[in-house]
Amino acid sequence: MNSLTLISILLTIVVYMGARKFAHRVPSPFTIPILTTTIIIICILRFSGISFDEYAQAKDWITSLLGPATVALAVPLYKNREIIKEKLMPAILGLFIGTLSTIVSAIWLAKALHLSESLQAASAVKAVTTPVAIETVQMLGGDTTLTAALVVASGLFGAIFGPILLTMMNISDPFSRGLSIGTVSHAIGTSQIMGEGPIQGGVSSVAMGTAAIITPVILAVLYRFL
Rank of each mutant, 00 (worst) to 15 (best):
M1Q: 06
N2H: 08
S8I: 01
I9F: 04
I9D: 08
L10I: 15
I13E: 02
A23E: 14
P27F: 13
P29H: 14
I32P: 08
I34C: 04
T37E: 06
T38F: 14
I39P: 03
I39M: 12
I41H: 06
I42Q: 03
I42S: 01
I44Q: 00
I44Y: 08
L45K: 00
R46W: 03
F47V: 04
S48M: 05
I50E: 01
A56E: 11
Q57A: 13
Q57E: 13
A58S: 05
D60S: 03
W61D: 00
T63R: 12
A69R: 01
A69H: 07
V71G: 03
V71Y: 11
A74P: 02
V75Q: 13
Y78R: 07
I83T: 07
I83S: 08
I84K: 01
I92T: 07
F96I: 13
I97L: 12
L100Q: 06
S101D: 04
T102I: 13
T102L: 14
V104D: 04
A106P: 05
I107Y: 13
W108C: 03
L109T: 15
H114Q: 13
L115V: 06
L115E: 01
S116Q: 14
S116V: 05
E117S: 10
S118Q: 15
S118E: 15
L119H: 06
L119S: 03
V125N: 02
V128R: 07
T129Y: 07
T130Q: 06
T130C: 05
V132D: 09
A133L: 05
V137T: 12
V137H: 09
Q138V: 02
M139Q: 09
L140Q: 12
G141S: 07
G141V: 06
D143Q: 09
T144Q: 02
T145A: 14
L146F: 10
T147K: 02
A148Q: 11
L150G: 01
L150T: 08
A153T: 15
S154M: 14
S154D: 10
G155F: 09
L156W: 08
L156A: 09
G158E: 04
I160R: 07
F161M: 12
G162C: 06
P163Y: 07
P163D: 13
I164S: 00
I164T: 09
L165W: 08
L165V: 15
T167G: 04
T167F: 09
M168L: 15
S172W: 07
D173P: 00
D173N: 14
F175D: 05
S180Y: 07
I181T: 05
I181R: 08
T183Q: 10
V184G: 06
G189P: 02
S191E: 11
Q192N: 11
I193Y: 11
G201E: 05
G202S: 02
G202D: 01
G202V: 00
V203F: 11
S205Y: 07
V206P: 00
V206A: 11
M208W: 10
G209L: 11
G209C: 09
I214P: 02
P216R: 11
V217T: 04
A220H: 13
V221T: 14
R224T: 08
R224E: 09
R224I: 10
F225I: 15
F225W: 15
